[in-house]
């Protein structure tokens, strides 16, 4: 049992968690941020042009600035991954694989995680041809053949980027049409080395020591399969909250998002949530940051009234 009892434990170190920490510390709450890495998804953004006050910045730079600001107000940061929360008298116990933390209130602000296709070979070949980050891993496939799974804007942007590096880019879209902005769809459809399989499902990713091919089938007829020779598979089918561990603790919506009210309260008094892992509409850095501030002020109010 940990001896230290924090006023507030913030789970997650993206814009929402860091903003919450800044606000909580300015109200002099004894605050800890527990996160695997500071910055969250924001850090993966190369160019940010819609965060007021910064005409153009990178996600990494913005994350560093927010981290620096939280540090300035003496928010404690612990690098760890929380895997369970349980209520105890006067607060909550948060557990990771090797540690326990105790806090009187909690803000859940751990954002989203990339969505998986869920087919054989996906886990086996991750890092050996299967990638979830086209910007990161695209250059390893110079002049090779790659396949992008997905049909939304992120898949189309990935295909556009990869078409400049790779010899051939296939797109596997499970729907009959792309679901992106008309500008991006037009741009990708005009690329001579990009070929799309619309209305096709991914069945399996095959390989030996690394990816060698992908098997797809017609969405309307599972028996109609095609095997495509490919060196890389880029999975770009969006993001989802990783909230399995919270089932039965706080209420989640069917999409797995933590249900909050306008005061960032979850179904459990003392547990708040903010940012992309909550059911707040629009997953944006500025919104996540604002929600983090709201959650911290609400946690302060909760602790003051206790």
């Amino acid at each position: 049992m940990p001896e230290k009892i924090y006023d507030l434990a913030i789970v997650g170190g993206g814009p929402s968690g860091l903003t919450a920490a800044i606000y909580a510390r300015r109200r002099e709450l004894d605050t800890v941020i527990i996160a695997g890495a500071v910055g969250g998804q924001m850090s993966l953004n190369n160019e940010i042009e819609n965060y007021p006050g910064f005409e153009m910045t990178s996600g990494y730079e913005l994350a560093e600035k927010m981290k620096h600001q939280a540090d300035k107000f003496d928010a404690q940061r612990i690098e760890d991954e929380i895997t369970s929360i349980s209520p105890i008298d006067g607060g909550f116990i948060l557990k990771s694989n090797n540690h326990e933390y105790q806090a009187k209130s909690v803000i859940l602000s751990f954002g989203l995680h990339h969505r998986e296709v869920g087919v054989p070979g996906e886990h086996e070949f991750t890092g050996r041809g299967v990638s979830y980050c086209a910007i990161c891993d695209g250059p390893f496939f110079k002049n090779k053949t790659v396949t992008v799974i997905g049909g939304g804007n992120s898949a189309l942007e990935a295909a556009n980027y990869l078409s400049e590096i790779c010899a051939k880019v296939y797109i596997i879209n499970k729907y009959p049409q792309f679901n992106g902005t008309p500008f991006v769809i037009k741009k990708v459809s005009e690329l001579s080395n990009v070929q799309a399989f619309q209305n096709y499902l991914t069945k399996e990713i095959k390989g030996d020591t690394k990816v060698t091919s992908i098997i797809i089938n017609d969405a309307n007829d599972a028996s109609k399969t095609t095997e495509i020779t490919t060196d890389g598979v880029f999975i770009e089918i969006g993001y989802q909250p990783k909230t399995d561990w919270l089932k039965g603790i706080v209420d989640l919506n069917p999409g797995g998002e933590i249900i909050i009210n306008e005061k960032n309260e979850t179904s459990v008094p003392g547990i708040f949530a903010s940012g992309d892992c909550s059911n707040v509409p629009f997953k944006q850095i500025i919104i996540a940051a604002g929600e983090g501030a709201k959650a911290a002020l609400q946690a302060y109010k909760y602790l003051s009234n206790k």
Partner: peptide, 13 residues
């Protein structure tokens, strides 16, 4: 790689 976001997060760790 210098162009990779997660690498920048990994660096200080």
């Amino acid at each position: 790689a210098p162009w990779c976001g997660p690498c920048k997060m990994q660096g200080p760790i």
